[in-house]
Simulated assay, not measured.
Amino acid sequence: MSLVAAMAALVTVAGAARADQLADIKARGKLICGTLGTVEPFSFQHPQTRQIVGYDVDICQTIADAVGVPLELKTIAVEARIPELTQGRVDILAANLGYTAERGKQIQFSDTYFVSQQKLMTTQESGLTTLDQLAGKKITALKGSSSEQGVRRLIPTAETVTFQDTSSAFLALAQDKVDALCASELILVKLQHQSKVPMVIIAKSLFVEPWGLGMRKDEPAFTDLVNATLTKLAESGALDAIFAKWLGAGTPYNIKRDYAVAPIKD
């Protein structure tokens, strides 16, 4: 074999080794899932046990079970989600990760496991009730989130004010330091129920956002396992059970899953 051919074969073998993340996870003996840990009901600290629980956590647990290894959670900031994944510090993201074309170029998205209505909330006292009224206003969102990107894209005249966590963003709204807060409708409903200041959620969505689990690109075995697991959850009714546990009747949200587990398209 020529030197060039030998080098080419070596590169091919090395590439194949790098591409088998699923085997690496099994060999390591744990699945490391990146999640936010601050966003109820998706991933948040249980008030009694102090453990991170929620919809995203349960979804990641099903992936770990499918791989056949224990789950390790790693809490990460919104803006750190993709860097943590691409630099190999987590294996998968279950972290309120809305699909955008830009993100789709950087990482692999799973099939849809949640669909978020992105809306805006204002104080009742402000009198702001339509999206048109928010032109030129101060709007807050989590730093690095698709909510922030959506505000910048769809209300370009607004002044976007970002925070590292939802509590800080909400406090800014309650203290009239900003005019509106953009987030998932479910997050806003929870905040509205908890608020001592009367709040109004603007009825019209700013945009609708499919969420996927985030994975590194070019990992077909791991990607196929994740998508097959989500499909099995949906077909067996287990996904409805997880959804109902965190978002259904008896919760502050009281909604039903009305979307299919399906590939995310631009």
Rank of each mutant, 00 (worst) to 15 (best):
G88L: 05
G144M: 07
E148Q: 07
A19H: 10
D218R: 13
L230D: 05
Y253H: 10
I52E: 10
V161H: 01
L120A: 02
F170M: 10
D91C: 02
D176I: 01
T162L: 03
T223C: 08
V189H: 02
I92F: 02
A95K: 06
S2D: 15
A238H: 13
E148G: 00
T162R: 04
L188A: 11
D111G: 11
D240A: 06
I202A: 07
N254A: 13
A19N: 10
P70L: 11
L233I: 04
A174G: 07
V208F: 04
D132H: 13
I201Y: 07
L22C: 07
R18L: 14
V226G: 03
Y55E: 03
M1I: 05
Q133W: 01
I59P: 01
K143L: 08
D240T: 04
D91G: 01
F222A: 03
D240V: 04
S126W: 10
D65A: 11
V178Q: 00
V57E: 02
L128R: 00
T122D: 00
Q108H: 14
L97C: 10
S145D: 10
I139F: 00
A9E: 15
L247S: 12
A135E: 00
G237A: 10
R153K: 13
K74T: 12
L154D: 01
R152F: 02
V78S: 13
T129F: 09
T130Y: 07
T157K: 00
E72Y: 12
I264D: 09
L154E: 00
K190T: 12
L173M: 09
S147G: 14
T162I: 11
I242R: 06
L31E: 03
L188Q: 09
H193L: 08
C60Y: 02
G15S: 12
K196Q: 15
A5G: 11
A6E: 14
I92P: 01
K105I: 02
D58L: 06
P220R: 06
A27K: 14
L142W: 07
I107Q: 04
L186R: 14
G98A: 14
A174T: 15
T160R: 01
I264T: 12
V115M: 01
A169Y: 15
K143G: 08
V115H: 01
A244D: 15
M215T: 03
T49F: 14
D179A: 00
P47F: 08
Q194A: 13
S147E: 08
S195L: 03
L73I: 01
R18E: 13
A238M: 10
K30P: 00
E72I: 12
A14W: 15
R89E: 05
Q133Y: 01
A5Y: 13
A249G: 08
N227I: 03
Q124D: 13
H193N: 11
A23S: 15
L173H: 12
N96Y: 14
G68Q: 08
D266Y: 04
S145A: 12
A234I: 05
G212P: 09
I32M: 05
A16G: 08
A158N: 00
R153E: 01
G29D: 05
A19Q: 09
K245P: 03
G29L: 06
H46F: 12
K196H: 13
C60T: 03
V90R: 00
K30F: 05
P252T: 03
R257F: 13
L181Q: 01
L22H: 15
F243R: 02
E102A: 15
W246G: 04
A5P: 04
A169G: 15
S110N: 09
L171N: 15
A183F: 15
E235F: 08
W246N: 02
I59W: 01
T38C: 04
